[in-house]
């Protein structure tokens, strides 16, 4: 259980990050809002609470790693990295613009704080396996986190990685699935059904927990329980709401990859509150 002040701190961080996400995609006139908003608490919890990392020393060997396998949700990661101080928040204005280090999908060589490049779906979990295998070879105790989209789990390569992580006992690999149940063309269960999802991961030999992905206490508990468990990798299936935090975006598949217009942006900003103090 988080203490009240920590919980409040994280909630305020999440609100700030949501505002940045909506602003980035509005300014860029492209980008993926829905899945960024649904995974905000997870990324905030990792970088502001759970992960060992140092923005002043992005290459610190003992740091925990994070791979955004659902790379299209770069806005949430960029907003959090900027908030941590990996680069100035003013850089967020350059998202998806020529010359920017903030590419549409994460490009590790350019952006401070990124541990891996991702883009086309299904690659990131395998890359995270490579990072976790490297840690194991070096007897390092750091953790490797990955965040997958639920639509992304339709990629065959995800299940290759699932087999691999089990074979090589990558117990320090902790993955989330952002289970918002929506993908570009509609509901995951109508486009390509995934349920019963926990059973699938269990069958592949992973530890599985199912949580409310917007509840910081549950995220904290799931990750704490995951570390060091019985040689198995962990999948945390986080039930979430796509577009969470902006009423008219919630649970609407069209907000997967569309930018808001000026009127929608102003409504979204009003709902997310303004001028919260930056910590």
């Amino acid at each position: 259980m988080l203490d009240a002040s920590k919980r409040h701190f994280l909630q305020e961080k999440a609100r700030h990050v949501r505002r940045e996400i909506v602003t980035m995609v509005y300014q860029a006139r492209s980008g993926h809002i829905g899945g960024s908003l649904s995974s905000t608490e997870m990324v905030v919890a990792l970088y502001h609470h759970l992960m060992r990392h140092d923005p002043g020393n992005p290459q610190m060997v003992e740091r925990d790693r994070f791979v955004l396998s659902k790379g299209h949700c770069s806005p949430v990661l960029y907003a959090v990295l900027a908030d941590c101080g990996y680069f100035p928040s003013s850089d967020l204005k350059t998202f998806r613009r020529p010359g920017s280090h903030l590419q549409g999908h994460p490009y590790q060589p350019k952006t401070p704080g990124l541990d891996a490049s991702t883009g086309t779906l299904g690659l990131g979990l395998s890359t995270a396996c490579g990072l976790a295998l490297a840690a194991k070879l070096r007897n390092s105790s750091h953790k490797v986190f990955a965040l997958c989209g639920d639509g992304e789990l339709q990629e065959g390569q995800i299940w290759e990685a699932a087999l691999f992580a089990h074979k090589y006992r990558l117990s320090r690999l902790i993955a989330f699935t952002d289970r918002n149940r929506l993908q570009t063309d509609g509901s995951t269960e109508s486009v390509m059904p995934l349920d019963p999802l926990p059973d699938k991961w269990r069958a592949f030999g992973w530890n599985v927990s199912v949580i409310d992905g917007h509840d910081f206490d549950q995220i904290d508990k799931a990750v704490s329980q995951a570390t060091g468990q019985d040689n198995r990798p962990t999948m945390i299936i986080a039930n979430t709401i796509k577009g969470r935090g902006v009423s008219f975006m919630e649970n609407v598949a069209e907000w997967h990859g569309n930018p808001p217009n000026a009127e929608q942006y102003s409504r979204a900003s009003a709902e997310l509150g303004s001028d919260e103090p930056r910590v």
Partner: peptide, 23 residues
């Protein structure tokens, strides 16, 4: 030595992860 089984796509990305860590 790591045998990835019949999964060439995973193979290349696992290799990418290992390279990111200096292998």
């Amino acid at each position: 030595f790591f045998n990835c089984g019949a999964q060439e796509q995973n193979l290349l990305c696992v290799a990418a992860g290992l390279a990111l860590e200096g292998f």
